[in-house]
Design a protein around this nucleic acid. Structure first.
Lengths: 195, 195
DNA sequence: AATTTTAATGTACACATGTTCATTATATTT
DNA sequence: AAATATAATGAACATGTGTACATTAAAATT
């Protein structure tokens, strides 16, 4: 299956288009390979020579979206150093990105959907966190294992996105960003009682 | 299907037993309803009158495990106030619990498994976080929306568990707890560069 | 334009899914 | 112990899954 073969491109585009069409009327989990192929007018055998299952079609699309996110994130990060004062600049990009592709992230965070999409997002955000950390926190390396710190911080951000999703994206992105700044400016939310 | 009917109990126990048996040799995603019923010697039609799919059998079991976690968590929390000095007491219980049921949490965190299990764990931890927060951080209510703070903190902890899982639970629970204490004692991991 | 390469199709197969319903077996209730 | 209630079974059916392979169609190459 040569990537540039016109037949291959046509097949994959038909399937992607059909998937987006079906997603308008039913959840991803309810879409079968058979139904997708019927709508796309693609032989089911052909489908299996391109994808393992319906999820893989969606995943390919999500990868494009996440790539868009990567660009959105990198931009402000490059021009500002990663301090709490301007973390706003990098994170607001995340929030705007998720809002932009709200329909997709609703699927990613769905109860019935496999964790793979979550991990895709997680790994992307974590890579950025790592780059940020490397520049400003080299001295922390021996105090905490960097891996744990990174996963802690990354997943914390994803926790905000999950909550945003659960609330139907009602909170404005700017407000969400403000929440994050406030949380980060706490010494530690757990240090209560003795301050 | 009356819960106390001996036939019902026997059916459900057979299925649970068969599931645990099959899990020894293959991943959850590879277990079909048909195979499970064959091993449990239960009619497939009977299966569907109890469960929607294989995941529901596992989920019922996980709920028992999470209930065990609830007890483990509540114990130290009740006797100590929730300060950073003794957060260790509550969190170490989480780590010990996850370690104890390592085989199950490996499944929960698996790429192929639906998010539902993650949310089950998330909601449980979040409930405890909420109780902790209510006592020591009432004044924070208007600074950040409590929902976002809770989801941030809860998911951060789950981030540690995910990392632990990814590293095959090699880190000792005590070490993990020490990592957490260290992370929490940072003013903010993002405030670097200007301290 | 003719040739070669290879993607797509059609068909078949064994097995899984989810549902229905009459029949049988086994609890619970009287 | 007999009567009643209901859970479990078995069979059937339409549909979906994943794979295999010979055939056809449409690309790329010469």
């Amino acid at each position: 299956m040569l990537k540039h073969d016109l037949r291959v491109i046509k097949t994959q585009e038909s399937l992607r288009h059909a998937l987006l069409e079906l997603l308008k009327s039913k959840p991803l989990e309810a879409i079968s390979v058979a139904e997708l192929c019927r709508l796309a007018q693609i032989n089911r055998g052909t489908f299996y020579s391109h994808y393992k299952d319906v999820h893989e079609v969606f995943k390919r699309y999500l990868e494009v979206i996440v790539e868009d996110f990567r660009r959105a994130y990198e931009e402000p990060y490059i021009k500002t150093r990663f301090k709490i004062e301007n973390i706003s600049a990098s994170m607001i990009e995340i929030f705007h990105h998720v809002k932009k592709y709200q329909d997709f992230y609703q699927i990613v965070f769905d109860q019935r959907i496999p964790m793979m999409y979550y991990y895709l997002l997680f790994d992307t955000v974590r890579t950025f966190m790592k780059e940020s950390l490397a520049k400003s926190y080299i001295d922390a390396t021996d105090r905490v294992q960097v891996d744990y710190l990174l996963s802690y911080q990354t997943n914390a951000i994803l926790g905000l996105l999950m909550e945003w999703n659960r609330q139907g994206y009602m909170t404005p992105a700017e407000e969400l960003n403000k929440q994050l700044i406030t949380i980060l400016s706490f010494n530690s939310p757990f240090r209560g009682g003795d301050r």
